[in-house]
């Protein structure tokens, strides 16, 4: 038992530790201006991101991200259920939606700046404008693929209105909705950074570009590492939530596989 546990820990931590050590040792005497020693980066990490900056830059960024993502989810699922439920509406809307989805979201930043200026509202709208498409289109697909027998059963039991929405439509579309939300999460982080690089007076993207422009290279590296950590933490949180929400679905799939 102990040996297998030890082996598992070794496998999980082995490569990251080796990579970290290689980075540390290889850059230890680095004279390169762009690649400072990892030791230096780590030593400035603390000063750079704790205290004032945590409140003034990291927190606003995170709030914009959450606001945009939540709004996009509500909009995407809401519209998706409507569009997915009516064949004609779907036929009218689908090419338009596919086109909007195909536009690389960052190019909408200049347009949204025209309408919404350069405040927090602009950043939230930018995030929404990029995140809503994968959620919307996946919801449409999920609602459309509701099992026919289940839909008929619900109808013959006179399950209608909110109960039908909650227990039939949203439930059976949830694997697709979660898949869309997973795609949207990485888009949300990208747009948060991009919108702050364009026009902002605070935030992670703004600060990192500021470091780069003033050639504060170790600080810039700490920003890159922090963004990486943010991406990792958010995706881990998402996976945790997904496993809880879709526990029934994963169970169903593995049961189907066994049979």
């Amino acid at each position: 038992m102990a040996a297998t546990a030890l082996k598992r820990i070794g496998l999980v931590l082995g490569l990251p530790v080796i990579l970290f050590a290689v980075w540390y040792v290889a850059t230890d005497n680095s004279q390169s201006f762009y690649v400072p020693p990892l030791r230096t980066i780590l030593s400035v990490f603390d000063d750079t991101w704790t205290g004032q900056r945590l409140r003034a830059d990291v927190l606003p960024s995170a709030l914009r991200l959450l606001a945009g993502y939540a709004l996009a989810t509500v909009l995407g699922v809401g519209l998706g259920v409507v569009i997915g439920s009516y064949r004609r509406v779907r036929a009218v809307a689908e090419p338009v939606l596919e086109f909007f989805r195909a536009i690389p979201p960052p190019v909408l930043v200049p347009v949204i700046m025209l309408f919404a200026g350069i405040g927090d509202g602009m950043k939230v709208i930018v995030i929404v404008s990029g995140c809503v498409w994968p959620i919307l289109l996946n919801t449409v697909e999920g609602v459309r693929a509701v099992d026919g027998v289940l839909a008929d059963t619900a109808r013959s039991y006179r399950i209608t209105g909110p109960a039908r929405l909650r227990h039939l439509l949203l439930r059976s579309a949830s694997p697709q909705i979660m898949a869309g939300m997973r795609q949207a999460l990485s888009i949300a982080i990208i747009l948060m950074v991009i919108s702050e690089m364009f026009a902002a007076s605070n935030g992670l993207g703004f600060t990192i570009v500021q470091f780069q422009r003033s050639f504060a290279i170790p600080e810039m590296w700490t920003g890159i590492i922090l963004l990486g950590l943010l991406g990792f933490v958010l995706s881990a949180l998402f996976r945790f939530a997904e496993n809880r929400v879709l526990a029934w679905y994963h169970g169903l799939r593995s049961a189907q596989r066994k049979s």
């Binding site: 931590l13 990208i190 993207g205 810039m220 920003g223 963004l227 991406g231």
Partner: peptide, 17 residues
């Protein structure tokens, strides 16, 4: 574990670099 860690790093983080 390394792939799971590196994959969610947003590529725009690399813009300054």
């Amino acid at each position: 574990s390394t792939i799971e860690f590196l994959r969610p790093i947003p590529s725009v983080a690399l813009i300054p670099l």
